[in-house]
Design a binder for these strands. Structure first.
Lengths: 251, 251
DNA sequence: CAGGGTTATTCTCAGCTTGAGTTATTCTTA
DNA sequence: TAAGAATAACTCAAGCTGAGAATAACCCTG
């Protein structure tokens, strides 16, 4: 942090070219059985027409997390209780000198997880906003270093599913084990053994707790009614729900 | 990130009170069988006389990671190959509005891991620098939010030991399984079963590779010569070396 | 309304990993 | 030379995992 010697020795930041600090939000939700990320189309240069993460300058007196929530709320129109149910966490910071051509901008990225959200309201101001399926990301033109930020967020999400109850943030208040399995399959991108998943979820203490109720009907294509569960009180999963190790990820 | 509408609509940061961005480094090493963190004593207000993490302003044109390495190198006097062997990673960012009484300062904290380092050189400038055993941290007066940053760094270190080969960064180029076990015991703060640890370390692919050599002598208090190992090429440990779950950490 | 296809939930079972304890062996120190 | 200490290897029971299969409930079509 501020090292007084340097402060007095000419490293006073007020003598530096101005810098700015923004937050960017990687908001993930599951819609139509796909993992999707919230993007805004930029109206003006630089990167006019490109898509970018929702975000903006951190205001004076505003905390980092508060700025992330504000930006998210502005773009989604979400507020009140639904907004409170969205999980936010700090992802990482990005500050390569030329990441924004206008000036030196440091961006602190946040990750937001929410259950199936409505189409974005595109803010009051302007610019198209949309949920982009991550499978479509490779063909989309993204502004700044936002592709990297999204990839970092994705990897964080995948790994947090393993050892935290994060998956319960992608489903509603009450959910079935199959709902939860769909989250894992969607985020990890491959199918899981239904029986083993079921056993595992129920065996991890505090991950879910039964409500006693079941769904009104069976699935759309048949099957019995499923029991309903609520998120439990665990903050960490022990033992964890591990992804099968893939050699290419390990070395 | 920069949302052009807002940029034009009066959220130009150049109209804001100036902000500054610093990096702070939580440098951890193991000395005298204790986990220690590098601290600098502040000479001038605010927090004169308090201890702080090494750090300072990010220079124009300087990347975040480069700034962290520079600050670390300045305080430890380390350079060249020894510096290259130090592992750096971004920890988190801190930006509560009043964390520094002088102005709005955002700090991006880095974590550095290094094997047994010499006494710090206290920089060319001034101010005492020292390695503080973490067991002594509770009684030390720390500046700013640095206590929180150190705690976050510690938790990160503990957890990265589980699923990455990070422990090999705390030992020299060649080491014995017992050396590695000492790292885990020191960072996690409790003893491990020697036999099981040995079996586990050798069974995780890519964690260590034998050199064929052994130590010159047995341990200082007896015992046979131990085989020497080098760090392997794994980036992730599969299966992981998990800490025993503690109930209080889980709920 | 019967039959086929689907899905939730429960079992089985072999293979693997884990925790705890033991043993053989090699070295240092007294 | 004897005692103590540490490495490395082994044993064994308990628990967890992946894979497959059985059971039962439910939807849809014909």
């Amino acid at each position: 942090m501020v090292n007084e010697q340097e402060f007095l020795a000419g490293y006073d930041p007020r003598a530096y070219p101005a810098v700015a600090v923004t937050v960017d939000v990687v908001a993930l939700t599951i819609r139509d059985n796909e993992l999707q990320v919230l993007l805004i189309q930029r109206a003006a240069p630089p990167f006019a027409g490109f898509w970018a993460l929702p975000g903006g300058f951190v205001r004076p007196e505003e905390d980092l997390g508060a700025a992330a929530r504000r930006e998210f709320a502005e773009e989604t129109g979400l507020g009140g209780e639904p907004l409170r149910r969205v999980h936010f966490e700090q992802l990482a910071s990005y500050g390569t000198p030329d990441r924004d051509p206008r000036m030196r901008i440091f961006s602190i990225a946040y990750l937001a997880f929410a259950p199936d959200l409505p189409e974005p309201t595109a803010g009051s101001d302007a610019g198209a906003a949309e949920w982009l399926p991550l499978t479509a990301m490779p063909t989309r033109e993204l502004a700044f270093d936002h592709r990297q930020i999204i990839e970092d967020g994705l990897e964080r999400a995948r790994s947090k599913l393993e050892y935290t109850p994060l998956a319960t943030r992608f489903v509603g208040e009450e959910f079935t084990i199959a709902d939860l399995r769909a989250v894992y399959e969607t985020v990890w991108g491959h199918p899981l053994h239904a029986g083993n998943f079921h056993r595992k979820v129920l065996s991890v203490p505090g991950l879910v707790e039964g409500t006693g109720a079941t769904t009104e009907h069976g699935g759309p294509r048949g099957g019995p009614r499923a029991r309903l569960y609520r998120a439990g009180d665990a903050r960490l999963l022990h033992p964890a729900l591990l992804r099968p190790a893939r050699e290419e990820n390990v070395r």
